[in-house]
Design a protein around this nucleic acid. Sequence first.
DNA 1: CTGAAAGCGCTTACAG
DNA 2: CTGAAAGCGCTTACAG
Lengths: 350, 350
Amino acid sequence: MSKRAAQNHKASAIPKGSRATGRVTIIDVAAEAGVSPMTVSRALKTPALVQEQSRERIMAAIDKLGYVPNQAAATLASARSQVIAVLVPSLTNAVFIETLSGIRDYLAEAGYQFLIGETGYARDKEEQLISTYLAHAPAGFLLSSSEQHEILQSRPASRAIPAVRMFDLGRSNEDFSVGFSQTKAGYAVARHLAERGYKRPAFIAAQLDPRMMKRREGFRKGLQDAGIQSAVEVLLPLPTTVDMGAQLLRRVLDANPDCDAVFCCNDDLALGALFECQRRGIAVPGRMAIAGFNDLSWAACATPSITTVVTPRYDIGYKSARMLISQLRGEDIPKGRLDLGFELAVREST
Amino acid sequence: MSKRAAQNHKASAIPKGSRATGRVTIIDVAAEAGVSPMTVSRALKTPALVQEQSRERIMAAIDKLGYVPNQAAATLASARSQVIAVLVPSLTNAVFIETLSGIRDYLAEAGYQFLIGETGYARDKEEQLISTYLAHAPAGFLLSSSEQHEILQSRPASRAIPAVRMFDLGRSNEDFSVGFSQTKAGYAVARHLAERGYKRPAFIAAQLDPRMMKRREGFRKGLQDAGIQSAVEVLLPLPTTVDMGAQLLRRVLDANPDCDAVFCCNDDLALGALFECQRRGIAVPGRMAIAGFNDLSWAACATPSITTVVTPRYDIGYKSARMLISQLRGEDIPKGRLDLGFELAVREST
DNA sequence: CTGAAAGCGCTTACAG
DNA sequence: CTGAAAGCGCTTACAG
C-alpha cells in the first residue's frame, strides 16, 4: 500500500463529526508495527530501551506511513518543549546575527528549535519578552542582558527554566554566562593607541547600552594608565549606522580639532568615520587614526584596513547554546563564567 | 489571597504521584470567576461572544492567578498553531534581516510567533526544512524561493497550509507572492549606465542564485537595447563578502582593462570594489563607475556615495506576513502577485 | 450568551 | 523489554 493509499484508507475511516485530523499518529504506527503506542514512543525517544527487532519494524512503519511526530502533543504531555527562546538586542546588527548562527548550528545538532525576540537594547523589553515566551513553555532561555530577571528567579525549583547570559560575563559565579570582558577590550584599544604615540584620542558611541559603557570605561582607564588624556567623547543614544559614524566624527572634530585618533565603539561607526575623513581629505592614519570594534566583514579590506577588536560572537552563540543544553540534559556542569576572550587586530588605520 | 498564596494553595492540593504541573489553568480561572472553562476560552479568543460582566470577572481572575495560556494545549486541541515558519536564504545578509524585521513587526501585531530556517540559497534545503517544520504544525509558511514545493501542494485541501513567496514575483497568479521584478531592476541599471555614457560596463556576482541570474538577464537586455556591449561578466559561486567584491573587480580589470563601469549584484560587492579602486588609485567614477544593489546602510554615505537599487525588503516582509495572515483569517483576498517595485538611487559613483 | 462531554496525540507513572 | 490507564490543558461540536 502506498503512502497516499495508507492515508486515504485512514481518512475514509473517520467517523462523521469527529475531530480526527487525518494525520498519521503514533497509534497508526503502533498498529502497523504490531506493538503498543508506548513502544513507538520509546523507540523514538530512548531507542536503547527497545528491542532491536521491534525498533526495526517501527522504523519501517514510520517510513511507510509517513509519520511526523506532533510536537504540541509531546510538549503538552511532557510539560517541556524543544524550543529555546533567544533574546538579542537587535536583529539589524551583524554581530547578533552571527551569534544567532552559532546558536542555530548548535541547536540544530541537538534537535532543538528556537524563537527569537528582539529587545531593542532595553532591559524592560527583555523582561516583557520573557513573560510572553513563557507561554510557549520554552526549554530554556538565551539572554543578552547581564541583568537578573525576577520572573525567572521566582519560579519554584522544580519548574525552573535554565538560562544562559551571552556577551557579558556575569558578575559572579551565581549563574551561567558566556562572553568576554568589554572593559578589557576597551582597555586594550587605549593601550594600543597610546603605544602608537597618539596623544589625543577621542571616543565615539551610539546605541548606548551597558556594554558600550564598559568599553568606554576600559578605554578611559587605559588612557589614564598610559598617562594621556581623552580629547573628547561623543555619545548619542541613537541607533548605530554607518552614517552616524560620519556625524559623530564631525562632532569630534568640531569639539577638538587636535584630535589625532578615534575609538569607535563598533565597526559601523568606524566605517562612517573613515568615509568622513576621505570626504574631508583627512589622511588616515596620518592625521587621524581609526579603531573599530567587532571585525565586521569590511574592516579587513577597507582602504586603509581598519584596526579593530575581533570578538568571538559566533562562538558566544554556539557555546551558550551548548551550555544551556548541557543543563537541560542534566549534565553536571559548573555554574560560572565562560570567558572566550577577544583579540586586537592591528591594521593600517592606526 | 496573593498570587503566590493562590498558587501554593493549588500546589498543596496536588495528589501524590499525579502529573499535575502546578501551573494555573483555564479551569482554575473558571473556578475563580464562577464560569465554565469554555467561557474562559471564549473570553480569550472571541470576547464578543461573552457577556461583558462575565468577561470582566474572567479578566480579574486571570490577573489574580497569573494565568498564562498553554500554547501547546491550544495547538493540540485546535490542530493549528500560532507559529509561522519563515525560510530565508541566509541570516548573514542584511537584506534578509530587514525582511525578517518586517515579518516580525506584522506578526507581533497579529499575535503570531515565528520560526526561522536558513536555506543556504538551496532549493533542496528549503524543501527539507518545510518537512521539518511541518512537525510544528505551523499556521503558514513564508518562503524565499520561487519554486513550487510538492510537499505543500500534495496536502488535502482541508489541511492545506497557506504559503506566501517573498522577493520574486510568482510566474502566474496561481499562488501568492510579494516582491519586485529582479529583471527590470537589472535592466534599469544597464539603462542608467548607458545614459551616463559608459561604454564597457562589467557585471560581477557571487552567491549565484536564481535572483542574481535574473538581475544579470535584465542587465544584459538593457545593454543590448542601448546598443552597447558588456565588457565582461565575472560570476563566482561563493558567498558574498566585501572582500569578494575586491577580488571580483581585480578579475574584471585583468580580463578587460578597458572596462569603465561595473554593476555589482549587491552592495557588499560594490563596497569591496570601491575599496579596491581606492587601493589602486582608480578614480571613481572618473575611471570606473560602480553601481550596487539593495541600498544597504553604507551606500549613501560612502565616499563617493554609491549608486544602487533601493529594494523594498522591509515591506516585502511586512506585506508577505500580512498577506499570509489574511489568508489564515479566511479573508477573501485574491491570489496573485504583489509587485512592490524598486527605485534606482543615482549617486556620485556613476 | 453558556456549558457538559469528548478528544487532540503524545508521555508519565506504574505494573508486569 | 513492553503495555494499559490516565492525564497534560486546551478547543471542537453540540445542545441548550
